[in-house]
């Protein structure tokens, strides 16, 4: 499969968006407002999880509004690690919305909290949790051949 190189600052910028959404949802709480905010965030994750971070609304804002004002990136990265991270974000926001709809409040806070945790690490500390977890995930889910 063809690799696409992207500006690593794009996913990091997008993570600020995701952080703002998930923090707002936590502050609004497990009610209609919070679930709606997480549902919008869920929708924002979908293109990134299927195609890649270059296809998201957040990525489009970065490309059109932010990137023209920045110097060219010192290095580019593959779209795959951030795409995996978007898939994790999609999973957790889906779980959060589902918990909210089913009226399970602790679940809503737990899963929204995960999204907040990961987006915060990605945006503020440039630490991609999904990328770090990938190998552990693979080790657990693939059976030993020996």
């Amino acid at each position: 499969m063809n690799d696409i190189q992207i500006d690593p600052r794009g996913p990091r910028f997008s993570a600020f968006f995701q952080l703002a959404f998930s923090v707002s949802a936590l502050l609004v709480g497990a009610n209609v407002g919070g679930v709606v905010i997480m549902a919008v965030l869920l929708a924002l994750f979908i293109p990134g999880a299927i195609i890649g971070p270059q296809a998201t609304v957040q990525g489009w804002i970065f490309r059109t509004a932010v990137r023209p004002r920045l110097a060219p990136p010192a290095e580019t990265e593959s779209f795959r690690p951030p795409r995996f991270a978007q898939q994790m974000g999609l999973t957790f926001s889906t779980l959060a919305v589902a918990s909210g709809l089913l009226g399970w409040d602790p679940g809503f806070f737990l899963f929204t909290g995960f999204v907040t945790f990961a987006s915060f690490l990605n945006s503020v500390f440039d630490l991609c949790l999904g990328c770090e977890i990938y190998l552990l995930f693979k080790r657990v889910t693939t059976r030993a051949t020996v």
């Binding site: 990265e77 593959s78 690690p81 995996f84 990328c131 990938y134 190998l135 693979k138």
Partner: peptide, 10 residues
């Protein structure tokens, strides 16, 4: 490395 690792190619 893994294909999902951002810091591996550099």
């Amino acid at each position: 490395s893994t294909p999902m690792c951002a810091k591996c190619p550099p």
